[in-house]
Nucleic acid binder design. Structure first.
Lengths: 103, 103
DNA sequence: TTGATAATATCGCTGAACGATATTATATTT
DNA sequence: AAATATAATATCGTTCAGCGATATTATCAA
């Protein structure tokens, strides 16, 4: 079955989930990619990294490079603005889903 | 505040909501546009109509033209394939939201 | 018959998604 | 010490979707 619609749904959520995780602890690309895979979501790095970049450019995330055994990791954590947005997004997502299940 | 992220979230949901409403009764563009507006969502017709077209082309909706006082309306209703997709989408959306709210 | 109205359709631009490829910095092997 | 492997991030070029603006369709009203 064609599930472009399911993909769109996922893509709408990915940014919110990034903020959600970056709110709990610093995260980095590969790790988050694995996390998604574990949940059955296959998202390419060509999609994922630019999302991180955009979220940082827009001030919702801040990042810090760290050298782990010679591999550079860029750890992202949420900003104050990011937290505000995250809360709004969670509310909106909840409302939209609730509407689908009421009556 | 920049809320492109909230918009992406909405856009991911719009198709699911279209299927959801078209499952309850036949709907048409202007009406659904009003419905979204009432909920505070502003979606242009240049966005909305192509979505309807795509959903029909993919076999999730079927449409029938009707002439109401000389104004042509195209009423959309859900297909069997559309119902299956709708159920999957609802499950996926629910899971994604639940994760945002657990622990 | 001209204009107003309700609705759908589509154009052209911009920007995002994505597979593929390049780059970075070290550790390991030959 | 040179070459290879590895873990990770970065970005290119193409395709496609979102969207404001504009066009089209079919009546009714002035």
């Amino acid at each position: 079955m064609n599930d472009k619609l399911l993909r769109d749904l996922l893509l709408g959520f990915v940014k919110v989930h990034i903020l959600h995780h970056a709110d709990k602890e610093p995260i980095f690309g590969q790790e988050f990619h694995e996390e998604l895979k574990r949940h059955g979501y296959d998202l390419s790095f060509g999609t994922l990294y630019p999302i991180f970049h955009k979220l940082e450019a827009d001030g919702y995330l801040k990042s810090k490079k760290e050298n782990i055994n010679g591999k550079i990791r860029r750890y992202y954590s949420i900003t104050a603005t990011g937290k505000k947005l995250l809360n709004k997004a969670k509310e909106q997502a909840k409302e939209l889903v609730e509407e689908l299940f009421e009556d």
